[in-house]
Design a protein around this nucleic acid. Structure first.
Lengths: 188, 188
DNA sequence: CATTTGACGATACAATATAACATATCATCG
DNA sequence: CGATGATATGTTATATTGTATCGTCAAATG
């Protein structure tokens, strides 16, 4: 919940080269990939959007828009709700993040960042944003993104059977993750 | 969106026998089934809850909590947000309705009402509320509930594979329903 | 260079949901 | 019957999430 613990890199270099906040190297690397991804889509990952995505990458958990706003304000004075929602809308449209509807919260999409596959085509010529599947642990609040072909196939099949032309699917599976279930078992 | 059109039954009998609003016969019948269902679960479908469920059954579309509140006020002076949310929570817990997360709106669960199967068991001894799958048409806003065994099986399988103990799943499929797709085709 | 377009600042507001506490209703038991 | 506890509802206020709108600025485009 609170601020993250001390980080293992040199904080003095954080604001060295640019006017924008510097995240740890691993995050900066992912952000660079995101920048490339955007260029290829003819879009721009502006400094503001980069910061918002960076904050999400740093968080172990899904972040609400107002969580993000609070954090963003430490980097970007004067940020207001529309500031955050615009960045989120942009990132959502490109598939760089997902919204977890049940939590009204957002997570970065590592699949897009790591495999650079933003857009998918399911049917004849129909393009459709990759929409993942999420395991939501109610103990530790962590969210794991799956990309299970079986689930997707079942959903596409059921939609077709109903004559429904699907463009997006929201799959949110709630329960207890392996780690928390293990811990509970150990306690008993 | 607006108030429903004139109804084909005798409005004079609406408040005859009881102090609670009377819905058309088909709805009253479903409400009676809901009452029975609750008794079997040792719960009570109070007049307030019955009215809320009735309003939802009368609506062709998902209703937001504040839509319900507005309607409820015509039947139940002094209703406030908590009035509605409490009724919704009750109905959700019993599986008599579902929440469509993407719409922040609610629909009655006809599966529960028509088949009286509220609780399911997926794994060894673990009970779990029936959680349906929803086709959401972005043209006409209608929502169709599926209960596709293939989707459920795929989700259960993927959860197990990840060591995740699922208790509830939210499946919301957005797109264009057969009727609206047909209409669009006709226009072209 | 003028124009257009997209991004951002800033204020206000709308829509959704809950906290907290008071009151009422009802069943049960002594 | 009257006390007691549990459940349901009334009431007010507030928290949380999300948009509308309008103005400004800066980069891209012709």
């Amino acid at each position: 919940m609170g601020t993250p613990p001390a980080l293992a890199y040199d904080a003095a270099r954080m604001t060295a080269a640019t006017d924008t906040h510097r995240f740890p190297p691993r995050t900066e690397h992912l952000l660079d990939r995101a920048t490339d991804f955007c260029s290829r889509e003819n879009m721009k990952l502006t400094s503001l959007r980069r910061q918002v995505l960076g904050l999400m990458l740093e968080s172990a958990r899904p972040m609400g828009a107002y969580d993000l706003l609070e954090q963003l304000r430490t980097l970007h004075e004067g940020a207001a709700p529309p500031t955050v929602y615009r960045a989120l809308d942009f990132l959502l449209e490109l598939g760089l993040i997902h919204k977890i509807e049940r939590l009204s919260a957002f997570v970065p999409c590592l699949h897009t960042l790591e495999h650079d596959h933003g857009l998918h085509a399911h049917e004849e010529g129909e393009e459709c944003l990759h929409s993942g599947q999420f395991l939501i642990c109610r103990e530790c609040s962590q969210v794991t993104e799956l990309e299970d072909a079986g689930i997707l196939a079942a959903i596409v099949a059921a939609s077709r059977k109903a004559g429904f032309r699907m463009t997006h699917s929201t799959i949110e599976i709630e329960g207890v993750c392996a780690r928390c279930a293990g811990a509970a078992h150990a306690r008993a």
